[in-house]
């Protein structure tokens, strides 16, 4: 492996880490503001102009707070759990092409850390591993709300992962590759080529599953504040809790990138317009995550399992079968 490649990769990793950690923080700001506006409030207003520095204030607070490890918790697991969530969220980002390739000072940059040929599988797998964070954190804590949250996490996990995998299977059959770059190439011809037109059902199913994946309303039942306090995060404080939050928001951003890349043409033909288009689509999906939080109620865990197993999974299977037949003949 030559040195230039190594240096380039390290720089990309650092940039992605920095950009998305910052974005995760800014994401919380957007979330508060948008939720507030939708509920006719103003949201954060006091720190900085229009509360813009609220993110910095939160960061300082999280970093300087005492890191409490309660007496009765299983300390090693309790300590490692938030790291799993945050780390896997960022690891998943390795296979996401955030922008089309561009030339900087005569050097061609591919804004993807590793264009591996199992891209989407790797991303979904990594995000799946990320659920071990809430699961282990909840089980290592010494209160029933965390335990309930962990139990819910396990139940939710096995439900939606099936839907995610099966719904994505049909587009994969069409494209014939697991790499997101190939997905993008497949749809590069313009709006007419977007997979969402040939696979609308898969798109909707994957979108629904993405809500379960990130644990957002209406599937916010792993850390449902009004039922089980903060769920797995109940006993966490300071930066460990912050890592959970960063992981959650980074996940939201990454999924907001993955959905357009898979179904909505990604960055298209790779021009500047296409790149901006991808960012706009990403922004819409991120906004939608916040939008639903203001609009929709949460479902119960059993309703989510009912939905995943009895409705979404059969639909996904039917979709795969029909796609297979159409491709065969």
């Amino acid at each position: 492996m030559d040195t230039a490649y190594l240096i380039e990769t390290v720089i990309k990793v650092v940039v992605i880490l920095l950009v998305f950690s910052a974005l995760a923080g800014i994401g919380t700001y957007f979330e508060r503001k948008i939720l507030a506006f939708m509920q006719r409030r103003l949201g954060p207003m006091n720190v900085g102009p229009y509360g813009l520095l609220q993110v910095a204030a939160d960061g300082i607070k999280l970093f300087t707070k005492e890191d409490i490890i309660p007496t009765n918790v299983v300390a090693p697991i309790f300590k490692i759990a938030p790291v799993i969530t945050a780390a896997t969220a960022f690891m998943a980002a390795a296979a996401i092409p955030f922008l089309p390739q561009f030339t900087l000072f005569g050097y061609t940059v591919h804004p993807i850390v590793a264009d591996i040929n199992i891209g989407i599988l790797y991303i979904l797998g990594m995000m799946g591993v990320g659920l071990y964070g809430p699961l282990l954190g909840g089980m290592a804590s010494a209160n029933k709300f965390s335990l309930l949250s962990a139990a819910r996490g396990a139940a939710v996990f096995i439900s939606y992962e099936v839907v995610t995998g099966l719904s994505i299977l049909a587009p994969i059959m069409l494209v014939g590759s697991l790499s997101l770059v190939d997905f993008n190439e497949y749809q590069a011809g313009g709006i007419g080529n977007w997979i969402v037109w040939s696979q609308p059902l898969a798109f909707v199913l994957f979108w629904i599953a993405a809500f379960a994946e990130t644990g957002r309303t209406p599937f916010h039942l792993i850390a449902n504040d009004h039922e089980i306090i903060d769920g797995f995060g109940t006993e966490y404080s300071g930066m460990r809790w912050g890592l959970f939050a960063i992981g959650e928001y980074a996940n939201m951003f990454f999924l907001s990138f993955v959905i357009p890349l898979l179904f909505l043409g990604g960055y298209g033909d790779g021009t500047l317009l296409g790149a901006l288009g991808l960012l706009a689509k990403m922004a819409f999906f991120f906004f939608f995550f916040l939008w639903t939080r203001a609009a929709w109620p949460d479902v119960r865990p059993d309703q989510l399992m009912w939905l995943c197993w009895k409705v979404l999974m059969p639909l996904a299977v039917i979709n795969v079968v029909i796609t297979g037949f159409i491709m065969m003949f």
Partner: peptide, 20 residues
């Protein structure tokens, strides 16, 4: 029905009739 809910909150956001 879900879209009705989405529309209601979006409408309030656009109207920007803040009560804070």
């Amino acid at each position: 029905e879900l879209f009705v809910g989405l529309w209601v909150v979006l409408r309030e956001m656009i109207k920007f009739d803040i009560h804070t």
